[in-house]
């Protein structure tokens, strides 16, 4: 359960990235957040695992009040929240398996990570995560030898290896081509459904959002301007989110056709 109440984030320099947000995301939901760049999508996602602190207001994640957490509390929270990134954020110079094992760092003792000797259970979890996204055979390959889509699947496996109750995905397909984007979105959706993982995905392509989201949240200048099921999200709604009518830039299929 993720619950924002009157939550605001103001960055140094006075930029209001989130403005008095009230939002509740229930367990197991698959939510897509849409909005222009700068609308506060990234800030919303990074507030959930405490990477960006709230300036004011309340945020409850899995029964914890995030703004009050100390360093240990934050680590515990983050151990339950997997994260998938736009730029994949993999370590290129090491194996795919080592990258996925980073998802186990919250549990593996520091001395073991120093020696690179991971417990068998954790290696098993990492392998299972790789298997779920269909690239177990690449486990011993160096991460920089993979294609973009494969790299993002490693990113998903790393989040999955945490055995999270929540997965946050920040523009997970923004650096991928359309077919690969659909593969990655399908894995995210499937994992959320089968394992009951609450998933929050930032997207800027509207057709992708309506194709996969159970629920769409529209942000504009840090404010919630839409919250409803994907099928309610028509052109008029998008206009209210984007402040202008749709263009080819806003849908992946049309952009790919250009």
């Amino acid at each position: 359960m993720i619950r924002f109440r009157d939550a605001s984030v103001v960055y140094d320099g006075g930029v209001r990235a989130l403005s008095n947000l009230d939002l509740e995301i229930g367990d197991g939901e698959f939510v897509v957040v849409v909005g222009l760049s700068g609308a506060g999508k990234s800030t919303l996602i990074r507030a959930v695992n405490g990477l960006v602190p709230l300036t004011s207001g309340h945020l409850e994640v899995n029964g914890r009040e995030v703004p009050g957490l100390d360093r240990t509390g934050l680590r515990e929270l983050r151990s339950e929240v997997g994260m998938v990134f736009q730029g994949f954020n993999l370590v290129d110079r090491t194996s795919v398996l080592n990258n996925v094992l980073m998802g186990r760092l919250h549990r593996v003792p520091t001395w073991r990570t120093l020696l690179g000797r991971y417990p068998a259970d954790d290696v098993a979890l990492a392998a299972a995560a790789l298997d779920r996204v269909g690239i177990l055979d690449k486990a011993r390959v160096r991460a920089n030898h993979l294609s973009g889509g494969q790299r993002q699947r490693v990113g998903i496996a790393r989040a999955l290896a945490q055995e999270p109750s929540i997965i946050l995905a920040d523009e997970p397909v923004a650096s991928l081509d359309p077919p690969t984007s659909h593969v990655v979105m399908r894995y995210l959706k499937q994992i959320s459904n089968e394992l009951g993982i609450t998933t929050v995905v930032n997207l800027h392509f509207l057709d992708l959002a309506t194709a996969y989201a159970d629920r769409i949240i529209g942000l504009r200048a840090g404010e919630l301007v839409f919250d409803g099921p994907g099928e309610d999200c028509d052109a008029a709604v998008f206009e209210s989110i984007y402040g202008r009518s749709l263009t080819a830039d806003d849908t992946m299929d049309k952009q790919a056709a250009m």
């Binding site: 954020n89 980073m102 919250h106 120093l114």
Partner: peptide
């Protein structure tokens, strides 16, 4: 990027340095 991934995964500081920074 990998540093952010390590922090977001709840790694201790030293574990993060070992896994996200040292290989680089």
């Amino acid at each position: 990027g990998p540093i952010e991934a390590g922090v977001a995964a709840g790694a201790s500081n030293t574990s993060m340095l070992r896994t996200a920074v040292l290989p680089q």
